[in-house]
């Protein structure tokens, strides 16, 4: 559907995407990080953040057992705390999709699968398409693809665009998140350009990183991508979601991300339909902060299950 929409769009020349002044972005982000989020707004924000997490395990040593545990945790974040939301999704490799899907049943929690020769993306297109189709066939609700960073850096923007469009088609009903791997793109100008390529090619979400490369989801990068989303929305009327992933492990940083969403793309994006955190340890930090708010006592990790 998005691809049919994109055919009607005027595809811009990606060589001439807007430039970004990095120092200005740093100043803006510093302003956002000086926001003070207290009391009710803090609790509300943290619950919202929990509900936006893509609880993730992407390791070579993952087993069905480990994934089942993660899926249980996704539904029972901390049973001692009443009325907690669940996370948004569980994010796994294609081989684990079936296991996850079964473990999550009708909890409403989505299964996201990485694909396209994640994390490097160094594979021929047919393999990437097969990888994607496999994940979708296994029941994945969402696909997290990686772009071909080498082709992007070599200036082959059409290649990158076509590949995303092809994967989008292979996704069928699954929503497509496009990982830019910003740590390898290096400049914010590149981040902006890659964001536009992904959105015009049909991305439902744009996502910062695989989590395998540092730096990952810095505030500067997420800000740059949010502003690209905002401009795209203003031009086309199409909402695209945002997923910072990698490096967000503290609730304070998560809250600053949410403030940033509020002050850039606006309140409409403050929903797990449009904003996600790709994270593995963020949930527990938020839980500890929530219990601290409730009891007044600073918390220990020993009282919160690790997965």
């Amino acid at each position: 559907m998005k691809s049919s929409a994109s055919k009607k769009l005027n595809i811009p020349d990606f060589r001439f995407t807007p430039t970004i002044d990095k120092v200005g972005v740093e100043e803006r982000v510093a302003r956002i990080q000086s926001r003070s989020i207290k009391k009710e707004s803090k609790v509300e924000g943290m619950k919202m953040a929990l509900n936006m997490i893509d609880l993730t395990t992407l390791e070579g040593k993952d087993t069905p057992g480990k994934v089942k545990q993660l899926c249980y945790k996704a539904q029972h974040l901390h049973d001692h705390y009443p009325d907690l939301p669940t996370v948004a999704a569980v994010c796994v490799y294609p081989s684990m999709v079936k296991t996850a899907k079964k473990a999550l049943g009708n909890s409403g929690i989505k299964v996201a699968s990485v694909s396209t020769a994640f994390p490097s993306g160094q594979a021929p297109r047919n393999i990437k398409l097969d990888d994607t189709k496999f994940a979708v066939d296994q029941g994945a609700d969402e696909i997290d693809m990686v772009i071909s960073r080498g082709e992007f850096l070599a200036g082959n923007y059409d290649f990158v665009f076509d590949e995303i469009a092809a994967i989008k088609e292979a996704c069928g009903q699954a929503r497509l998140k496009v990982i830019l791997e910003t740590g390898e793109l290096v400049t914010l100008d590149n981040v902006r350009r890659a964001s536009e390529i992904a959105m015009y090619a049909g991305a439902d979400f744009i996502k910062t990183s695989t989590g395998k490369i540092q730096p990952a989801a810095t505030m500067q990068v997420t800000y740059t991508m949010l502003m690209a989303i905002k401009d795209y929305y203003d031009k086309t009327g199409i909402m695209v979601g945002m997923k910072p992933a990698g490096g967000i492990s503290k609730s304070k940083l998560a809250l600053h991300n949410l403030i940033m969403v509020k002050e850039t793309v606006g309140d409409d994006w403050l929903d797990n339909e449009w904003f996600r955190f790709g994270a593995s340890s963020l949930a527990n930090d938020i839980l500890m902060q929530l219990v601290k708010q409730q009891t007044g006592a600073y918390q220990s990790g020993d009282y919160f299950s690790i997965d």
């Binding site: 926001r35 003070s36 989020i37 207290k38 009391k39 009710e40 707004s41 803090k42 509300e44 924000g45 919202m48 949410l258 403030i259 509020k262 309140d267 403050l270 929903d271």
Partner: peptide, 8 residues
Amino acid sequence: KKTWDLSP
């Protein structure tokens, strides 16, 4: 949905 506002 209701907006998320900052507490004083």
